[in-house]
């Protein structure tokens, strides 16, 4: 595989479709989302790695306010804490990641999801595909990063 021709095996349309399916399946598209709690600020970064015949990451960024609201809906519980939110957002990126992986070459392994408060400052890999899903007027950004043709040992997760 060439180091600079970063042909994406995944299209933004694929991501839209998968993202839509994920939100639909978690019943997140049903009735009108509640007003996300604007008292919360900041963004959560979730990522999951793909290793093997293709190497890279799938990441998801969502505001904390929207993430709280998403979590309440997934758990059918109004009383959720920060751990719940991280777990829920981690599961979202896991489900997206697995499905994106299935569009790549066969024989890759999915890592376990990580959720952090900051994007890693280094640019570890190349963004090859991105889409925005909308949740309660909040963007949920989904990106695919390729680490193909790079020295994998010097790389860290983009999340």
């Amino acid at each position: 595989m060439s180091a600079f021709a970063q042909e994406s095996p995944v299209t933004p349309e694929d991501l839209q479709l998968l993202g839509g399916d994920v939100l639909a399946a978690f019943l997140l598209d049903h009735d009108r989302p509640g007003d996300p709690d604007h008292g919360r600020s900041g963004v959560l970064h979730a990522s999951v790695s793909v290793r093997g015949a293709w190497n890279g990451w799938i990441t998801l960024e969502v505001s904390r306010a929207a993430a709280h609201d998403l979590t309440r809906r997934m758990l059918h519980d109004d009383d959720v804490d920060d751990d719940d939110v991280r777990d829920a957002v981690g599961e979202l990126v896991n489900v997206l990641g697995g499905n994106v992986k299935s569009l790549l070459v066969d024989g890759c392994v999915l890592g376990l999801p990580e959720v952090t408060d900051h994007q890693h400052p280094d640019q570890p890999s190349v963004e090859i595909c991105r889409t925005e899903l909308w949740w309660a007027d909040h963007p949920v950004t989904v990106r695919v990063w390729s680490a193909e043709g790079r020295d994998l040992h010097s790389l860290r997760s983009p999340a």
Binding site: T71, M74, D84, D87, A88, E91, L112
Partner: peptide, 12 residues
């Protein structure tokens, strides 16, 4: 499932 969220959803 290692995700508590998923466990809760399925358990429900």
């Amino acid at each position: 499932d290692d995700s508590r969220t998923m466990r809760m959803m399925l358990a429900r």
